[in-house]
């Protein structure tokens, strides 16, 4: 597909909690092959928007289309089958299963084996094994494959979650604050993995992040939300120079040093 293809198209998406318009008439497009950041102060509606896009919680109004199809009301597992993967702010993993089993569940799901009452053998099993190996090596967790995920460090759990969201062969990966709560070294590691998602796997990435150093170095495009509304959208340079964005972040000092 041409680089200009629109993979994800959200138009006029709104989500209300009680009297609060958590997401208010937000429209944005994610183009294929880009790394797209979604930023904004706390409570801007970033995660709520993610939930609406991924089908975790349906929007009240507006439309979401993915790969040219309207998925506004599609159940989350159907969106995954269409090629959408996502991670959560708190790593959403199977804590009491091993790293290997976590990833294997996803690989089996994608291979149509999850419903089997007998463990497949032969070629089908070998294909699953090979894919699990590949994914574990991609996130560099092969050495920890037999450890329980609950025993892993926070950053490693995020990598397990990323490997799982890759196991279903997505074309678009939504990462919700992949660097939250991580030390510097761990952050660099995740940044490396996100770069690899595009350069080595050819995926499109939409991610939420607070760390502006990371956002400005990773993203091709940035969308800024503030109090549920779309505030600005543009290239990192445009966003860094945007007055309204500076105002929204005023007092937080995040843009002062860039």
């Amino acid at each position: 597909m041409a680089p200009e293809t629109i993979l994800l198209d959200a138009s006029h998406v709104s989500k209300v909690f009680g009297g609060v318009r958590a997401v208010d008439d937000v429209s944005m497009q994610v183009r294929e092959g880009t790394i797209h950041a979604l930023i904004g102060p706390n409570g801007a509606g970033k995660t709520t928007f993610f939930n609406a896009v991924s089908g975790y919680a349906m929007p009240e109004s507006g439309h979401v289309s993915f790969r040219g199809k309207d998925v506004t009301r599609a159940l989350n597992w159907k969106r995954v089958a269409m090629g959408m993967g996502r991670t959560f702010q708190t790593p959403s993993v199977f804590p009491e299963l091993t790293v290997d089993e976590n990833v294997r569940l996803g690989v089996r799901a994608h291979a149509g084996q999850a419903f089997r009452l007998r463990t497949p053998r032969g070629a089908a099993a070998a294909a699953v094994d090979a894919r699990v190996d590949e994914l574990l090596r991609f996130v560099n967790l092969a050495a920890q494959r037999d450890r329980l995920v609950a025993e892993l460090a926070h950053g490693s759990q995020r990598l397990v979650e990323i490997a799982m969201s890759l196991s279903t062969d997505p074309v678009l990966v939504l990462l919700d604050e992949p660097m939250a709560g991580l030390a510097e070294a761990e952050t660099d590691r995740i940044v490396g993995v996100i770069r690899d998602l595009r350069t080595r796997l050819g995926l499109t990435v939409l991610f939420v992040e607070h760390n502006m150093r990371v956002v400005l170095s990773l993203a091709d495009r940035i969308t800024v939300l503030d109090r549920g509304k779309l505030l600005a959208e543009g290239t990192p340079a445009e966003i860094a120079a945007d007055e309204s964005v500076r105002d929204a972040y005023l007092g937080e000092g995040v843009l002062e040093h860039v």
Binding site: W77, K78, V80, S92, P95, A109, H110, A114, S165
Partner: peptide, 18 residues
């Protein structure tokens, strides 16, 4: 194994496309 996964984290099972 998928049943065990549902017990531990059903949202993730659904986000594995199941």
């Amino acid at each position: 194994r998928t049943l065990v996964a549902i017990r531990q984290n059903e949202a993730r099972v659904r986000f594995l496309g199941l």
